[in-house]
C-alpha cells in the first residue's frame, strides 16, 4: 500500500449465509481524491461502507483507513473520519444544534464548529428546530453536518445526495469538491446515481454483485460512456437526456440555486 493511499481493502469479502454481499474487493483510494463507488441497489456499496467503518466484520480480507486496519470495536481512528451511512438519522427529540452538540462532545471538536457547520450546510433557519420536524432533505444536510463537524481527513459518504433537491445536490457537490481541493479531504462516496458521480468523482469504481467490475478516471469513464451512448442510444433517448439537463438548469435558475 502506497503512503498516498488513504483507504485500501484487500480481498474484502462479506457473506450473509448464501448471499455474497461483497466478494474479493480490492480498493485503493488516494489522498485528496474523490472516489465514486457506483453500483445498483444491492450491489454491495453499503456493506462495503459498513466494513470501512467497522460496523460489520468482514467474512475475510481486510480494510485499512489512514494506514490503520479497521477492526470492529477499535474506534480511535474515527476521530479522523467523517461518515454518513445510508439513511439520514438523528435524535428526533433534539434540535439540529443539540444533535450536533452530541457529535461535538464525542469527537472533541471545538465549540465554534457547530455554528460554522450549520452555516456551511445552510441549516441556520432550522438550527433550533427538533429534527423530528425536519424534511428528509434537511435531515440529510444535518447528517452531512455531523460528518463534517470535526474536520475529518476522510469522508465516507453513502448516497450523500439522497433526499436532496436539485439545488441541494449542486450545493453538496460544490462543498465536497472544495473540501477535496482546498483542504485535501479524501472523499469516498457511494451512489447509484450516475450523474452525481460523473460530475464529482476523480475516479470511479463500478461494483456489481459485490465485485468491483471496473475502475477508471473520470475522463476515461466519460469517454467510454460517450462511446457507448453514441452506439446504443437512439436520437430520442439523447434528446430526453438533454431535456432533463435543461429542466434541471431552468429549475435551479428559478429557485436561486447555482447552475
Amino acid at each position: 500500500m502506497s503512503t498516498d493511499t488513504v483507504i485500501s481493502s484487500r480481498s474484502l469479502t462479506k457473506h450473509y449465509g448464501e448471499v455474497h454481499a461483497v466478494q474479493d474487493l480490492e480498493l485503493d483510494v488516494r489522498r485528496g481524491e474523490i472516489y465514486g463507488f457506483l453500483g445498483r441497489n444491492g450491489a454491495g456499496k453499503t456493506t462495503t461502507i459498513r466494513m470501512l467503518l467497522g460496523l460489520i466484520r468482514p467474512t475475510s480480507g481486510e480494510v485499512s483507513v489512514l494506514g490503520r486496519r479497521i477492526v470492529p470495536g477499535e474506534t480511535s481512528i474515527f476521530g479522523r473520519i467523517g461518515y454518513l451511512v445510508e439513511t439520514a438519522t438523528a435524535y428526533p427529540n433534539l434540535t439540529v444544534r443539540e444533535n450536533l452538540e452530541v457529535q461535538r462532545r464525542l469527537t472533541g471538536a471545538p465549540r465554534t464548529s457547530i455554528t460554522e457547520t450549520i452555516a456551511l450546510l445552510r441549516l441556520e433557519p432550522y438550527a433550533d428546530r427538533r429534527t423530528g420536524q425536519l424534511s428528509l432533505g434537511n435531515k440529510q444536510r444535518l447528517s452531512l453536518a455531523r460528518a463534517l463537524l470535526h474536520s475529518p481527513e476522510v469522508l465516507v459518504l453513502d448516497e450523500p445526495a439522497n433526499a436532496l433537491d436539485p439545488a441541494g445536490i449542486v450545493e453538496v457537490r460544490d462543498l465536497l469538491r472544495s473540501l477535496a481541493t482546498q483542504r485535501g479531504v479524501t472523499v469516498f462516496m457511494s451512489s447509484h446515481i450516475l450523474a452525481e458521480v460523473a460530475h464529482l468523482a476523480d475516479r470511479i469504481g463500478i461494483v456489481h454483485d459485490g465485485r468491483l467490475i471496473e475502475e477508471s478516471g473520470r475522463e476515461e469513464f466519460a469517454a467510454k460512456a460517450r462511446a457507448f451512448s453514441a452506439e446504443a442510444l437512439t436520437e430520442q433517448e439523447r434528446a430526453d437526456a438533454l431535456l432533463t439537463m435543461d429542466l434541471e438548469r431552468y429549475f435551479l435558475s428559478r429557485t436561486g440555486g447555482t447552475t
Partner: peptide, 15 residues
Amino acid sequence: TEVTAKNMLALPVAR
C-alpha cells in the same frame, strides 16, 4: 429504532 446506532458506533469512543 431511531436508527442512530450506526452513528454512535463509528465515533472515536470505545463502545
